[in-house]
């Protein structure tokens, strides 16, 4: 047997699942298990109890409404990626998810599970932060909504209490006529990002940036909104000097030290390069061919 000894429960109600978590501080929620099971196979994770939530009613399905996309706890990455309503309402989702591992992992791993695992290099947490989404956590005393920027606290650490289950995530729609882009630097396709950057841009009538949102993963202990860069770019024509200034202002956001993959200075250069590319790509999609020529 690869994993060490653990207990297993498959409750059919949320209340029972929460009770099981509350009764055992070493209990862990099992959804898709695509991060938890490798860790258990290495015996890097040794939970005392797995609470398998897949048989609980009401944790399946995606709902696209006027105020956003609701993704329930058992929705797999692949469902989110291929959902046609999601594709229409927020095409950034599919662009991001195509970078999450490989299809046979995405058919099992869940969107909410990735959020709760909170790997700072992971793409889905970045998506939630970039869009300004939130999660709904349910615990013994009821439910609460936690904004993305409050949810991710540190490496593998979220604002979720031990006895809470995140029952859904809420991803906002893209603003009307906004352009979007996401890309990442990795050693191999499907790996966690060395650095990933997502961008959403809205342009005004004159082709200037009315609203810019930028976020990055892989640079710190959590996904980071690049607010200094956003402020620099907002109101500009997104010219080369604006992009350079935005990239320069983001250098300090890279706090991840040298590691086995790359040095910190490499991460900083990669972040700058991705910011430039993603802002240009998002702006092009927002409909500014004129701007694209000026930076080409």
């Amino acid at each position: 047997m690869k994993p060490s000894i653990f207990g297993y429960e498959a409750p059919t109600s949320l209340e029972d699942a929460i009770r099981l978590l509350a009764g055992d501080t070493d209990a862990v929620v099992l959804a898709g298990g695509q991060t938890l099971l490798p860790a258990m196979n290495f015996r890097a994770a040794n939970p005392s109890l797995l609470v398998d939530i897949q048989h609980i009613q009401g944790l399946r399905g995606i709902a696209v409404g006027a105020d956003g996309i609701v993704v329930k706890a058992m929705v797999r990455h692949r469902e989110f990626e291929l959902d046609q309503d999601v594709l229409c309402a927020n095409p950034l989702v599919a662009e991001v998810i195509q970078h999450v591992a490989h299809v046979p992992i995405r058919t099992r791993g869940t969107v909410v599970g990735s959020l709760c695992h909170a790997d700072p290099s992971a793409e889905i947490p970045l998506l939630l932060v970039l869009l300004g989404g939130s999660v709904i956590a349910q615990g013994p005393s009821g439910t609460r909504e936690i904004a993305a920027e409050d949810f991710f606290q540190s490496f593998l650490t979220t604002a979720r209490s031990h006895d809470e289950i995140v029952i859904e995530a809420r991803f906002p729609l893209l603003p009307r006529r906004a352009g979007w882009a996401f890309d990442e630097v990795t050693r191999r396709h499907g790996d966690y990002a060395v650095v990933g950057v997502g961008c959403v841009v809205s342009l005004d009538g004159s082709g200037c940036a009315e609203r810019v949102r930028l976020a990055a993963c892989g640079i710190a202990d959590r996904p980071i909104r690049l607010k200094d860069a956003e402020a620099i770019l907002t109101g500009t024509a997104l010219g080369i000097s604006d992009l350079d200034a935005a990239a320069e202002a983001s250098v300090a956001a890279v706090t991840q030290p040298d590691d086995i993959n790359v040095s910190q200075s490499y991460r900083r250069r990669a972040l700058g390069a991705l910011i430039r590319r993603m802002v240009v790509k998002a702006a092009q999609r927002a409909g500014s061919a004129q701007h694209a020529e000026s930076v080409a």
Partner: peptide, 12 residues
């Protein structure tokens, strides 16, 4: 759907 049988418990 294709999935990893090494990342799935038999009970799952």
């Amino acid at each position: 759907k294709p999935g990893r049988s090494c990342l799935t418990l038999a009970v799952q």
